[in-house]
């Protein structure tokens, strides 16, 4: 009964209701991916700290050997990709919360994307080069 009442007041089209994506056009995707990357980052960060601690003070040859070994390289790659995605989502929220000037907001959101992709590509490239030694 209340459903009928709601429907009569609902200004959304049937398609909008079915798609369930709301005013952001992406539903809860941003929220969900923030949590997804956060959960993944917990074990990956702990492993990253162990790897980094292990490599302190080692010479270049030893560092390359350890960072270039498959298991370490794969975990480091997962850490880098999880982290850049997580920080891309997080910085977008910070910009949206504090920057209210429309042009500045759009520019910073674009800059955020460029920065995160650049950092991710640089780290991924370095890890691949360490593994394949080209």
């Amino acid at each position: 009964m209340s459903t009928t009442q709601n429907n009569s007041q609902d200004m959304r089209t049937p398609t909008r209701r079915v798609r369930h994506l709301g005013a952001a056009h992406s539903g809860t995707r941003h929220f969900w991916h923030q949590r997804l990357t956060a959960v993944a980052a917990v074990p990956l960060t702990l492993i990253f700290i162990v790897v980094a601690m292990t490599l302190i003070g080692r010479n270049h040859a030893a560092t390359v050997q350890i960072l270039g070994s498959p298991l370490v390289a794969i975990v480091m790659m997962l850490f880098v990709l999880t982290t850049v995605y997580h920080m891309w989502l997080g910085m977008q929220v910070i910009v949206e919360d504090y920057i209210h000037h429309e042009f500045g907001k759009v520019a910073l959101i674009m800059g955020n994307t460029f920065f995160c992709i650049a950092v991710g590509v640089a780290c991924a490239f370095a890890l691949l080069k360490l593994s394949f030694g080209v």
Partner: peptide, 26 residues
């Protein structure tokens, strides 16, 4: 979170230095 956003550049520097060679790593 905001500080780590830029702190990631330290890791980027570390990995790129290791990938670049002994002189850059030093």
């Amino acid at each position: 979170g905001g500080a780590l956003y830029f702190g990631v550049l330290l890791m980027t520097w570390w990995l790129l230095a290791a990938a670049s060679g002994p002189a850059d790593y030093a």
